[in-house]
């Protein structure tokens, strides 16, 4: 194999090529992220403002239904709902985007070679950026309702990081499965609903936690993430068990997802 041997002679040339590849992939990833953000709100009059407005409106609806009508009269309850709703919303959006990412980019995949993992990855990352922007609305609502920031607030970086890992892991698994089975798009919608009801977005978890079905919440890594995030906002220490569990769950999902993805990515093109 003359070509390869010639390249090996100068190790530096090879190293440069690898480095160039990494830089190039980073450029492609940033272009894909930009595309996701730009296209998400294109053609709507309010544009990116919707990423603030939508959770705010949902919060109002949920507060009316589950606060006023069902009788939770805590003044900070809207903050509680909004924080859960924002985190769940990101998880649901990012995983759904990743699930569809290979099919959505099929035109490009069929034409040029790009590391395919960039498609689900960019899907999760652009949703993460929109999500971070939408946290502004949480700060605003907290200020209005008198939830003052404390030193504990800095903890929130931890659950946010775990949440990103969890979304990447789930996204990788779903994007692979989604190529081979279109049904997954519908099935995942149902699973997401189950996840939402078992992560205490709009109810207080104590009653359920103290019943014999408490495990339903505790096995849900998203509940653990949301719970720790709320601790940061309301000035408490995180629950370490929750942190260890959700972090381990995320890492394992990334490992499984990466393995699944790389084992199957060469077959994608035959199915899209």
């Amino acid at each position: 194999m003359p070509i390869r041997s010639r390249l090996n002679k100068s190790g530096k040339a090879e190293w440069d090529m690898e480095r160039n590849k990494v830089l190039q992939n980073r450029f492609i990833l940033s272009e894909l992220i930009k595309k996701g953000i730009r296209l998400k709100y294109r053609r709507s009059y309010l544009g990116i403002i919707w990423s603030l407005l939508e959770p705010l409106l949902t919060m109002i609806v949920l507060t009316i239904v589950f606060g006023m009508l069902m009788g939770v009269h805590d003044r900070a309850f809207p903050v509680y709902i909004l924080s859960g709703r924002l985190l769940y919303g990101f998880y649901s959006q990012s995983t759904t985007t990743a699930l569809k990412s290979i099919r959505a980019n099929s035109a490009m995949i069929k034409k040029v070679y790009v590391p395919k993992v960039l498609y689900p990855l960019s899907g999760v990352l652009y949703n993460f950026i929109i999500f971070l922007i939408s946290l502004i609305v949480l700060a605003g609502v907290s200020a209005v309702l008198g939830v003052r920031p404390t030193m504990y607030l800095f903890q929130m970086l931890v659950p946010l990081f775990v949440l990103l890992l969890l979304s990447i892991g789930t996204g990788l698994i779903l994007s692979t499965v989604g190529v081979f089975f279109r049904d997954m798009e519908y099935l995942w919608g149902v699973v997401l609903m189950l996840i939402m009801y078992t992560c205490a977005v709009f109810y207080l978890p104590e009653k359920l936690l103290n019943s014999r079905f408490g495990w339903v919440l505790k096995v849900n890594p998203l509940y653990c993430v949301i719970s720790n995030f709320r601790s940061a906002i309301f000035g408490e220490w995180m629950n370490w068990k929750y942190l260890v569990y959700s972090f381990t769950f995320s890492i394992v999902s990334i490992l499984i997802g990466a393995l699944l993805f790389y084992k199957n990515e060469d077959k994608f093109i035959l199915h899209i």
Binding site: Q24, F27, I28, E31, L32, K35, R38, L39, R42, A107, M108, K110, K111, V112, V114
Partner: peptide, 19 residues
């Protein structure tokens, strides 16, 4: 065939060029 239909010509130049 690899272009994104929602994206403008200019944006597609960057995206496709990157790829």
């Amino acid at each position: 065939a690899g272009f994104d239909p929602q994206y403008t010509g200019r944006e597609n130049i960057y995206l496709y060029g990157a790829v």
